[in-house]
């Protein structure tokens, strides 16, 4: 049902019509970061970020290469823990609780805050088992089949794969694999889905499918997307944060320059650096 309506959506134009004027301030903040600095070894990759991310919105993080946008994203579900030299300072409050506080289990954090990566990374298993694996691991084994159908439908993939669920996931195209990864992430019913340049390895048609999907998914989830594609941010995001690389003697580190509603970032940015980036003069 969802899938059908989404298939018929016209090709994406820049600046989709928005419903009501957006008021982020009235919404519940899912994440509030305070003075967040992530370093690899001694060099900070991103420094002193204060940012609030609101519920059921798509928040885009844009900026030039090396500005620490992926690093910032990965600090929101403690994926940086896996990089041995990474060090996090400051606080990331998730529904009021600091996820870097004492007694917080990163496994529990990641269970609620899912992630989709730049390169589609399905497991070397069947399509069915790719979605089922997380459900089984988390003990959500009741009604497995219908959970899997729901997740694949939400990811706009069900119609394409319903007759080949037991086939290997590597047989899918890149775009299908990425939607499978999205299905895998939402099957375990997270609260937030982080997307790290989810369409950068995909062709334009697959990209537009992923973007359509984000409009649907924000009704149920809070989405944060890192993208190097400004048009993509303009198309999908309600709020946009612009990061840039601040050069210092020892190299440079990422900083948050400006964060606002997407139309404002793209039409009336208040910082010259943002303006330079969105108008293509820099980056």
């Amino acid at each position: 049902m969802d899938a059908d309506t989404m298939q018929t959506v016209a090709p994406i134009e820049i600046a989709q019509p928005r419903e009501a004027p957006l008021s982020a301030s009235g919404r519940e903040a899912v994440f509030v970061t305070r003075g967040l600095t992530v370093s690899y070894g001694k060099a900070p990759a991103v420094s002193n970020v204060d940012l609030s991310i609101y519920r059921n919105l798509v928040t885009a993080i844009i900026g030039p290469s090396g500005c620490g946008k992926s690093t910032f994203l990965r600090s929101l579900n403690r994926m940086n823990d896996l990089i041995p030299a990474a060090k996090v300072e400051g606080e990331v409050h998730y529904h009021g609780q600091n996820i870097y506080g004492d007694g917080v289990d990163p496994v529990e954090v990641r269970r609620r805050i899912g992630m989709v990566f730049q390169k589609p990374n399905p497991f070397p298993k069947s399509i069915y088992d790719n979605v089922a694996w997380g459900l089984r691991v988390l003990g959500m084994k009741d009604d497995l089949d219908s959970r899997i159908e729901r997740a694949l439908t939400q990811a706009a993939l069900w119609d394409e794969v319903k007759d080949r669920l037991k086939k290997g996931a590597f047989g899918l195209s890149g775009g299908q694999q990425q939607r499978l990864c999205i299905a895998r992430a939402i099957a375990v019913e997270p609260d937030v889905v982080l997307l790290d340049e989810p369409a950068s390895a995909l062709d334009p048609i697959a990209t537009s499918k992923i973007e359509d999907l984000m409009h649907e998914l924000k009704n149920e989830y809070t989405l944060v997307i890192v993208t190097h594609n400004m048009q993509q941010a303009a198309r999908v995001a309600d709020m946009t944060a612009f990061f840039t690389l601040e050069r210092t003697e020892s190299g440079g580190h990422g900083v948050l320059v400006e964060y606002d509603e997407t139309p404002k970032i793209f039409t009336q940015p208040s910082d010259k650096r943002t303006e330079g980036y969105v108008t293509g003069r820099f980056g």
Partner: peptide, 20 residues
């Protein structure tokens, strides 16, 4: 990417070892 994919679903290290 595969290991991260497993961990991002809320799997523990052991589950990641066994499942991936």
């Amino acid at each position: 990417e595969l290991e991260e994919g497993a961990l991002a679903l809320g799997a523990t290290r052991w589950e990641m070892v066994r499942g991936v």
